[in-house]
Nucleic acid binder design. Structure first.
Lengths: 225, 225
DNA sequence: AGAGTCTTGATTATGTGTAATCCATGTGAG
DNA sequence: CTCACATGGATTACACATAATCAAGACTCT
């Protein structure tokens, strides 16, 4: 008799842990920043019991996405300008650090892969922000993915999710796209030239550029309402 | 009739959340690194039910002190040399960043406070590692405590707990103590001179020195068993 | 009357206990 | 060595008890 169940691809949602789904809803704005998170509402929303909800809330509290106050429940972490500035300040420290290891260790194949990804990015002219994010992730994954410092990678990953969600809400302008492409090209050039300092400088500039863009959009959004 | 209960100071332990107690036991080594964390054992140990234990485990998982694997339970995060190197690499990035804001904003009173704390540190000649840690914390609290970047502060705080626990297990040697004092003096001097770059450099060196010391002790410990 | 304080009730978080199910691992038969 | 099975423990669900918080109304004193 067939022991392996195959009717599961109809419900692959069960595979992703609850706190991951909730985190997605937080960064996507489905659970608005600052809003109250009541266990029973969430239990209904995700069709689970309140026990898993409580555990997910504690997990997200540890990760910093949720603020727990004793006997007063949970609220979604505020994603305001100050928060964006904070995480980009940290990105601007960590990304140059991460790339320094890659420079000098980069193989021909890896550099070729970066070039290929970058060409695909530049070939995209439509407003497919999701595809752009995937490619951008792949690009940086080549440079950071093999770094030994899993702590730093975890921090960058956490912050990256927030940045991703904001990028979805505020797509890059054509001007920003051009700047991004130029920065990517300069990153590749610095790596090919095995110039650590140049690579670190460009990567920092890359992060600062993204920060500037997002802050402008946030401010405009706040001004309009 | 007296409606206000007054027998509460006998049990103030309830005030500290479970995950804080567990975190303390993890960093102090009472719950050894890498060891299995069974919910029922922990429930007995802390005299609570399984639910709070699970919530604490999820919180600590989010903070990175505990590794959860689905249906396989929880283990204490390994505190090996690689981990120490990782977190000190991050400290060496964050601490210079944090202090740069303080330089130039430091008031006379704050500098005087740093000097006073440092004098107290140098007056300590006994092996009172706990007192030393408290004073060292106070010293750096003056410089970092008011920084706007609460994210960076949270990261430093988390890592600081691990460092603290290791420092308890491996007290600073007299040579290291002397180096620490000299570094503190140089930090004060750089701040008094409003020299951002110098302060950042010394702080980074300070972190690297602590890292070197701990790594040596860890290696010696591992060699002996 | 008006300002401040107290009581009360609804809501929700927090903790305990129990049961059912699922999964990973170890064991033993073949 | 391989596979079925047994078992320990995690995971989820549910029911209930306690306790903290908040808001609205009642009450008191000036």
């Amino acid at each position: 008799m067939p022991g392996h169940p195959q009717a599961e691809d109809t419900e692959p949602a069960e595979a992703t842990p609850l706190h991951v789904r909730m985190r997605g809803d937080i960064v996507s704005g489905a659970l608005p920043a600052g809003s109250r998170l009541k266990t029973q509402d969430l239990a209904r929303r995700y069709d689970v019991s309140i026990n898993p909800v409580r555990e997910a809330l504690h997990q997200l509290s540890g990760e910093g996405f949720v603020i727990l106050s004793r006997n007063r429940g949970a609220r979604v972490r505020m994603l305001d300008e100050a928060f964006v500035r904070n995480i980009f300040d940290i990105r601007a420290l960590i990304e140059p650090y991460l790339i320094r290891l890659f420079v000098g260790h980069a193989s021909r194949e890896e550099i070729a892969r970066m070039v290929a990804i970058q060409e695909e990015i530049e070939a995209l002219d439509g407003p497919d922000q999701v595809r752009l994010d995937v490619l951008d992730d792949a690009f940086h994954q080549v440079t950071y993915g093999n770094h030994f410092n899993s702590e730093a990678l975890a921090i960058r990953e956490r912050h990256g999710q927030v940045v991703h969600a904001l990028a979805l809400r505020y797509p890059a302008s054509p001007a920003r796209r051009r700047a991004q492409n130029e920065e990517h090209r300069r990153i590749i050039a610095a790596i090919a030239a095995a110039d650590e300092n140049a690579a670190a400088a460009v990567v920092e500039e890359h992060a600062r550029g993204a920060e500037r863009h997002l802050l402008e959009q946030l401010r405009r959004d706040r001004a309009n309402g």
